[in-house]
Amino acid sequence: MPTGVAIRDVRTQLFDAADRILLRDGPSALTSRAVTTEAGCAKGVLHRHFDDFDDFLAGYVLDRIDRLDSQAAALRRSAGTGTVADNLATALAALFGSVAVAIVALVTFRDELRARLRQTWPAGVPVLTEAAVMFGEYLGEERALGRIAADADVETLGYTLIGAGHLLFADRTGDRPDSAAVHRLVTTAIASALRTPGR
Rank of each mutant, 00 (worst) to 15 (best):
residue 78 S to Y: 08
residue 124 G to H: 11
residue 52 D to M: 04
residue 28 S to M: 06
residue 165 G to D: 02
residue 57 L to Y: 03
residue 59 G to K: 01
residue 176 R to Y: 09
residue 69 D to Q: 14
residue 52 D to A: 08
residue 14 L to R: 00
residue 50 F to I: 01
residue 182 V to H: 01
residue 155 E to C: 04
residue 37 T to S: 12
residue 2 P to N: 10
residue 96 F to N: 00
residue 128 L to K: 00
residue 153 D to E: 14
residue 99 V to K: 00
residue 189 A to E: 13
residue 120 T to D: 12
residue 43 K to I: 03
residue 124 G to N: 08
residue 140 G to D: 03
residue 165 G to L: 05
residue 96 F to I: 05
residue 102 A to S: 12
residue 23 L to D: 10
residue 18 A to T: 04
residue 118 R to L: 13
residue 134 M to K: 00
residue 166 H to L: 10
residue 83 T to V: 11
residue 143 R to C: 06
residue 31 T to N: 12
residue 11 R to H: 14
residue 189 A to Y: 01
residue 46 L to W: 11
residue 105 A to E: 13
residue 11 R to D: 15
residue 147 R to H: 12
residue 19 D to N: 14
residue 21 I to H: 00
residue 75 L to V: 07
residue 152 A to K: 06
residue 142 E to P: 10
residue 127 V to E: 05
residue 76 R to A: 11
residue 4 G to Q: 09
residue 40 G to Q: 07
residue 190 I to N: 06
residue 22 L to S: 01
residue 181 A to K: 12
residue 49 H to T: 07
residue 25 D to N: 04
residue 177 P to F: 10
residue 60 Y to P: 08
residue 113 L to S: 06
residue 44 G to W: 06
residue 61 V to W: 01
residue 137 E to H: 07
residue 118 R to Q: 12
residue 84 V to M: 09
residue 67 R to P: 01
residue 82 G to S: 13
residue 59 G to V: 01
residue 127 V to S: 02
residue 110 R to L: 11
residue 32 S to Y: 08
residue 183 H to E: 10
residue 119 Q to Y: 07
residue 16 D to F: 00
residue 149 A to E: 14
residue 182 V to S: 01
residue 54 D to M: 05
residue 83 T to Y: 09
residue 124 G to D: 10
residue 154 V to H: 00
residue 167 L to S: 12
residue 126 P to Y: 02
residue 130 E to K: 02
residue 123 A to D: 09
residue 72 A to S: 14
residue 147 R to E: 08
residue 197 P to V: 04
residue 67 R to H: 13
residue 126 P to Q: 02
residue 49 H to Y: 14
residue 97 G to A: 10
residue 137 E to L: 13
residue 154 V to E: 05
residue 136 G to Q: 00
residue 155 E to R: 07
residue 42 A to W: 03
